[in-house]
Design a protein around this nucleic acid. Structure first.
Lengths: 351, 351
DNA sequence: GATTCTAGTGCAATCGTGTGCGCGAACTGC
DNA sequence: GCAGTTCGCGCACACGATTGCACTAGAATC
């Protein structure tokens, strides 16, 4: 017995259940149960074990535990392009919420490209409990792997092409909000800067805008692609400005492109919002910078994360729950890149 | 035998070494060795095992492996405030380099605050192989924990208060570069916007600047704190502009603050670089935005990451290597926020 | 042809934790 | 006082991969 204890101590130097059990004079299983609060263990034993564990600085080995419970406590995270501050904010909050529920996030992938099966290998290697995906599309093989593995998965701002959960901002309603504001500000030549080809977010935001325009018997005064980047937005705005007559308002599918558009408009010698109004989507930090003061539709990040964690937790507890899609309304943030409608109260939000 | 195989298959559905071994008609140990390329296994057996593993879609269980090898393949990552795009860029590249060497990054902490011992718990739980820390300070207890654990650790842009490795930009030389450029541009009233109180990066950049000024028999024309944020830089610039005579150039300890400063200067009705030159540090994406075109000292991110991974790899292989500090020179990026020195070639870099 | 050597493989223990089942003691009820 | 129940705990195995050592078969040597 003493030999065994010395062996394990020599092996890693860190206390294990056996270390604790020998000090406490009980069996390893009792230690394990005591620390998990198993009701079969007497309160007296429990307290004694807990005290010794505390004093020895015991921390359970997550790998050993994961091996037998088949639950590693690890959640995979796939991030979009971090040049867009939106994802930075997202991952920061996601991280703390995951830690709160006792899970730790492992980075699977960063960047916008399609997620291939190589990138999701660690999901199987580490027997991940779940996965949160933002702004990337799974390759068909990768999706298949996830499905076979019955991996609880939540996609943020992505439509589900496979059986899974999604949480997104109500992009269609957001597009409508933007359109309504621009119409109230008496704009009639509204142009749109789209994101990437394959993203439903950009499409939905555009559809919302179009719906509102149609009701007012208007059509789009211009349309260009901005690839969700500043440079893309800049170039797209230049393209739109070349039209004759030029648009009097631009709605960009996200903030980064809107900022690019503002700079392009100004570089063309025009003023925002004097000559053109610009409205974005996301409400990232730089929209508040004094140079921009961009009016935008804020994504309800807090609510989206709360729901994502809920959906994920539920499915980690019962993997057979069916897929669910949640859509949350965004909120208009009125700043100074849109000409205010006549007699419009500065601090009110349009319905 | 058949029973056992069916049991393990039923347990998880995924192939294990045993599954492979039974199909191949060899023992699990042979499978393990064959897949690791052990020279004792004949080429014929190796190929057969590899083929079956491939066909069955076998992926080794990292937790089981980690349990016995005491190496989890996980590397902890501590990130600074992701509102600063610098860290976004950093983590994106760190991630891909880590994956290249077969390690996976787990997020330990995001944000600028001191790292307490709660946040680094997963290091022990998951028996992490190493840790990369950017822009956060360890609490004394956390540092002690790392030291006891002999955790290979590399800090990026942080001075080591404990026995470990650091990789940083040569902040002092960078400060000198900035100072020299401003003097060549015939500025004589140079002000500085500092970062947070406790950061050596800000201090070193300031010292470099001061050294150059001193040589030219000048002193700082102003100094304010910007807390490494846009708003902080904005407010700091306002404070500096209130001085009489006001500075004719501002060096900010990082780009985000420099951008805030530019906006403050313009909001005060002054021009950049006509009335004041502004220079930053980091070379984040927004410095290239058309509205700013900020001259800055670029951190050698690629080189810094390469060295960090090297240091970490070496120490994961031999944990007893002693601490090492590497400092890499940054590079001046000439843009338009600094008035060009008379007769200064636009595309040359100052010595 | 016997012996030594080597290449190739299998056995069994191990890492640290969780858990089904069994066992003894105490307690209850009549 | 005895049977049945409950309570508290330990035994032993499992999870999936790695690895030291033993073992076998064939080759090489004398």
């Amino acid at each position: 017995m003493a030999d065994k204890s010395e062996q394990s101590a020599a092996a890693s130097g860190l206390p294990t259940v056996r270390t604790i059990s020998e000090v406490a004079g009980v069996s390893p299983s009792t230690v394990s149960r005591a620390l998990k609060g198993d009701p079969r263990i007497s309160e007296k034993t429990r307290a004694a074990v807990a005290a010794i564990a505390q004093q020895q600085g015991y921390t359970p080995n997550a790998m050993a535990r994961g091996l037998v419970t088949r639950s590693s406590g690890v959640v995979g995270i796939v991030l979009g392009n971090l040049e867009n501050p939106f994802y930075g904010e997202l991952v920061e909050r996601l991280h703390s919420r995951l830690v709160e529920i006792g899970k730790y996030p492992m980075l699977l992938h960063i960047g916008g490209e399609t997620l291939d099966s190589e990138a999701i290998k660690p999901i199987r290697q580490y027997q991940m409990d779940g996965c949160i995906i933002t702004a990337a599309r799974l390759s068909s093989r990768a999706a298949e792997t996830c499905a076979n593995h019955r991996l609880p998965m939540v996609m943020i701002n992505r439509v589900a092409r496979i059986h899974s959960c999604t949480v997104s901002c109500d992009n269609y309603a957001g597009g409508m909000l933007a359109g309504e504001l621009l119409l109230e500000a008496e704009h009639r030549r509204v142009a749109f800067i789209a994101g990437r080809e394959d993203t439903s977010t950009s499409e939905d935001r555009e559809s919302g805008l179009l719906c509102v325009l149609r009701k007012a018997q208007l059509t789009l005064a211009g349309r260009a692609r901005g690839h969700y980047t500043y440079d893309g937005g800049f170039a797209a705005a230049q393209e739109l400005l070349a039209a004759d007559p030029r648009p009097d308002a631009i709605f960009a599918a996200n903030d980064i492109m809107a900022l690019g558009a503002i700079d392009a408009i100004r570089e063309a010698g025009l003023g925002v919002p004097d000559d053109l109004s610009v409205i974005g989507f996301d409400d990232i930090r730089p929209t508040r910078w004094h140079n921009y003061r961009l009016t935008t539709i804020a994504q309800p990040v807090e609510a989206m994360i709360t729901r994502s964690i809920e959906l994920l937790s539920e499915r980690m507890a019962s993997p057979d729950l069916s897929g669910e899609s949640i859509s949350i309304k965004g909120e208009m943030k009125l700043r100074e890149s849109v000409r205010l409608p006549a007699g419009f109260p500065a601090n009110a939000s349009p319905a």
